[in-house]
Design a protein around this nucleic acid. Structure first.
Length: 113
DNA sequence: TCTGTGACACCAC
DNA sequence: CGTGGTGCCACAG
């Protein structure tokens, strides 16, 4: 049972993310029990995303952006999902560049236990 | 058994 | 301020 790999624990944390809220890889990693394993979190979701069970689209970068290219087929699709859940977005002009044009407002929608 | 790799995060220049 | 490189740890071959 607790024999579950780190990967499985990550899925449990991601599943805990409430709708309309987002969490960063680093936060998920911390909740999983490894603040330094942020990389592992992404690897875990990509290794076994279990579509429909794990809302990986609620997991974003520390900057509020998403994984370019590995999202559901486009960050645009993910943006639509998050917006539909009630997540607030901010234009890239509001913050440093780097994102495709928008970013999740972590200040308002970052999941807090 | 060991090596390589990887949806990140942080620091340095 | 922007970009690049490194570090971390666990899983897969």
């Amino acid at each position: 049972m607790e024999r579950q790999s780190f990967n499985d624990r990550v899925y449990a944390v991601v599943r805990r993310i409430p709708r309309g809220r987002v969490a960063t890889y680093g936060q998920v990693a911390a909740l999983a029990g490894a603040p330094r394993n942020a990389r592992m979190v992404g690897y875990a979701l990509h290794a076994n995303p279990e579509p429909g069970t794990i809302p990986c689209h609620r997991v974003v970068f520390r900057d509020g952006s998403l994984a370019p290219g590995f999202a559901f087929g486009g960050p645009e699709e993910q943006r639509a999902l998050l917006e539909d859940e009630g997540v607030a977005f901010v234009p890239a002009a509001e913050k440093p560049a780097g994102a495709p044009g928008w970013r999740v407002d972590l200040a308002r929608c970052q999941w807090r236990q």
